[in-house]
Simulated assay, not measured.
Amino acid sequence: MLLSNTFVLGASAGVFNSGDILFTIAMFAILLFLVKKLAWGPLMGIMKQREEHIANEIESAEQSRAEAKKLLEEQRNLLKEARTEAQILIENAKKQGDLQREEIITLARTEADRMKESAKLEIEQQKEQAVSAIRDQVASLSVLIASKVIEKELSVEDQEKLINEYIQEGGR
């Protein structure tokens, strides 16, 4: 029997007490108001700030991703342009090299032709000088032979001997 009495300690035995109910409802309302003002409001404010922060971070990440994609595309375009310019520069350098090679070959041929003509002229001048020197010697020898012939009349043997002597003298 003792057990049945312990369960009933806080309440009246079957009596309806409206003051306790109103007091409990009032306390519950006050407690609900205080929780709303002191805990729920700040907690919801923190949750709202956290939500906004996360939304801003997501938006910032999306913007960064879009910007990175844009920069990547720009870099690809710049790289493509640089490759094209490099190819053009290489082609221009090859063309310029070919032109310079042709110019050098032309100049070398011109110089070779000039040197050949100069050598021909020099050879011709040397030939003219040699012919002139031979003519002078032949003329001297002729005059010398004629003067010797006039001085004395020679026999055929003497003439041959004299001619051979003059030829030997002229060869020196």
Results as ranks from 00 to 15, higher is better:
Ile58Leu: 01
Glu165Tyr: 08
Arg109His: 12
Thr24Asp: 05
Ala130Leu: 08
Ala146His: 09
Phe7Trp: 03
Ala108His: 05
Glu122Asn: 04
Ser118Phe: 02
Ser4Trp: 03
Lys152Leu: 02
Met47Gly: 01
Asp158Lys: 02
Leu34Cys: 03
Leu121Val: 07
Lys48Val: 00
Glu111Leu: 14
Glu51Arg: 14
Glu111Ile: 03
Lys161Val: 11
Lys148Ile: 04
Lys127Ser: 09
Val8Leu: 13
Ile104His: 08
Gln49Met: 10
Glu74Ile: 14
Gly10Gln: 13
Glu169Pro: 01
Tyr166Ser: 12
Lys69Val: 11
Ile88Lys: 13
Glu160Phe: 08
Thr6Glu: 04
Lys37Ile: 10
Ile21Val: 09
Ile145Phe: 06
Lys161Tyr: 07
Arg101Asp: 04
Gly45Lys: 12
Glu124Thr: 13
Arg50Phe: 05
Glu51Trp: 13
Phe16Ala: 10
Val131Trp: 04
Lys69Ile: 13
Ser142Met: 07
Ile25Thr: 09
Ala108Asp: 05
Lys116Pro: 03
Val35His: 11
Ala26Ile: 11
Leu38Val: 00
Ser64Met: 12
Ile30Asn: 04
Val149Cys: 04
Ser155Met: 03
Leu43Thr: 02
Glu124Asn: 11
Gln96Asn: 11
Asn17Pro: 00
Glu73Arg: 10
Phe7Thr: 00
Glu51Asn: 15
Asp113Asn: 13
Glu157Trp: 02
Arg50Met: 08
Ile163Ala: 14
Ser18Glu: 03
Leu32Cys: 09
Ile46Gln: 10
Ala86Asn: 01
Lys116Gly: 04
Glu81Gln: 12
Val143Tyr: 05
Ile21Ala: 12
Ala146Phe: 03
Arg172Lys: 15
Ala11Phe: 07
Ile90Thr: 09
Thr84Asp: 09
Gly10Val: 11
Arg50Gly: 05
Ile46Leu: 12
Ile167Cys: 14
Leu2Thr: 08
Ala93Tyr: 04
His53Phe: 04
Asp98Gly: 02
Ala68Glu: 05
Thr6Met: 00
Ser140His: 09
Arg76Val: 01
Arg135Thr: 07
Asn17Asp: 14
Ile58Ala: 02
Ala29Arg: 03
His53Val: 06
Arg50Val: 06
Asn92Ile: 01
Gln100Pro: 01
Ile21Arg: 08
Arg50Ala: 08
Ala26Met: 11
Arg101Ser: 03
Ile104Val: 14
Glu67Gln: 12
Glu62Lys: 07
Arg50Pro: 01
Gln125Phe: 06
Trp40Ala: 14
Ile58Asn: 08
Ile163Val: 15
Leu3Ser: 13
Val143Leu: 14
Leu141Ser: 06
Leu121Phe: 06
Arg114Trp: 09
Gln159Arg: 04
Met1His: 08
Gly170Ile: 02
Phe23Met: 15
Glu122Arg: 05
Met47Arg: 10
Ile104Tyr: 12
Ile167Tyr: 09
